[in-house]
Simulated scan of single mutants.
Amino acid sequence: MGPVVATAVSGTVLIAAGAFWLSFTSLADLARRSGITPEQAWAWPLIVDGIIVVATVAVVALSPSARPRATWYPWLLLASGAAVSVAANALHAVIAADAAVPDVVAAAVASVPPVVLLAITHLTVHLTRNVDAATPPEPDGPTPAPAAPPSEANAVDQRAEAEQLRLDGMSNRAIARHLGVHPSTVGRWLAPIDSTPESATAPTTRRSNESQPT
């Protein structure tokens, strides 16, 4: 992870933590005002805002590979959690707002933290997932050394084998496949053999026939 991406991820985590804290305190106070004991009031905002985080991670994790029908439930949870959190924060702002502040303004301000929490969680998951996909995996073991080029002695052995295979009647292409070399290499090795004319003995035979009396 590069420094730019690390800074972006750190910033999104800090913003998400701040948005979660603001929404948490508002929802906890609303839970206490609604009759939930102070010892249990902290659980209500944890459930409401926690489902936003979990559902966002589930949606992003399932999106690349899952079918659309497989993601409808995480999307439903995400939309429901966001709607409840925004509505509850706005309701708390109306109940606890200062009289000098209009209710609409108080509700709009209180709705910002849950919306930011939803957006920033989605962004954080996207950042971490895309960085992991772009980073090539490191090999488990030591990097293998590059294969050494064939030695000169090995080339001589291959040439001798190629000549023997050619004498056995194998074609150049078949010899190249057998030795794992290019057909042009085999042709270069066997050039002296191919260049020997089959009629080299013909003049001798002809001269021998002509020397015999008719």
Rank of each mutant, 00 (worst) to 15 (best):
A87I: 06
S211E: 10
T143R: 04
A90W: 03
A145Y: 07
T25R: 07
G11W: 01
W21L: 14
W72D: 10
L77D: 00
F20M: 08
V48Q: 01
P183I: 05
L91E: 14
L165E: 07
N130A: 13
V101A: 04
H92Y: 11
Q164I: 02
S34L: 13
V94C: 02
L46C: 12
A58E: 04
A96V: 08
D98K: 04
I52F: 00
H126P: 01
A99F: 14
H122N: 07
G180N: 03
T12H: 10
S199C: 09
A55W: 10
A202G: 04
G180K: 06
D29E: 11
L179K: 05
P197Y: 11
V5N: 04
L22H: 11
G187F: 00
P114H: 01
L165W: 06
L78Q: 10
Y73L: 15
G187Q: 10
V181H: 07
V131Q: 10
P192H: 09
I95D: 14
S208E: 12
L62M: 15
E161L: 14
E210S: 09
E39N: 11
M1C: 05
T128C: 07
P142W: 08
G141E: 15
I120L: 11
E138C: 07
T56R: 02
D140I: 08
T37D: 15
T56K: 01
D98N: 10
A8E: 12
G141W: 12
P45T: 08
T7D: 03
S195C: 03
L30I: 02
V54T: 12
L190A: 03
S111T: 13
D132I: 07
P137L: 02
W21D: 10
A97T: 15
R173I: 14
A70L: 12
L179W: 03
A162D: 06
R188D: 05
R67T: 10
A66T: 03
E210G: 03
A106H: 05
G169N: 02
L91A: 15
V48K: 02
L30Q: 06
A99S: 13
V57S: 09
E163S: 13
V9G: 05
A148L: 13
L123K: 00
R67W: 05
R206T: 15
S85F: 08
I36F: 15
D103M: 10
A162G: 08
G35I: 05
R207M: 08
V115G: 12
V116F: 00
I95C: 03
L30N: 04
V53E: 00
S80N: 09
S34G: 15
V54C: 10
Q212P: 00
A90M: 10
A97I: 12
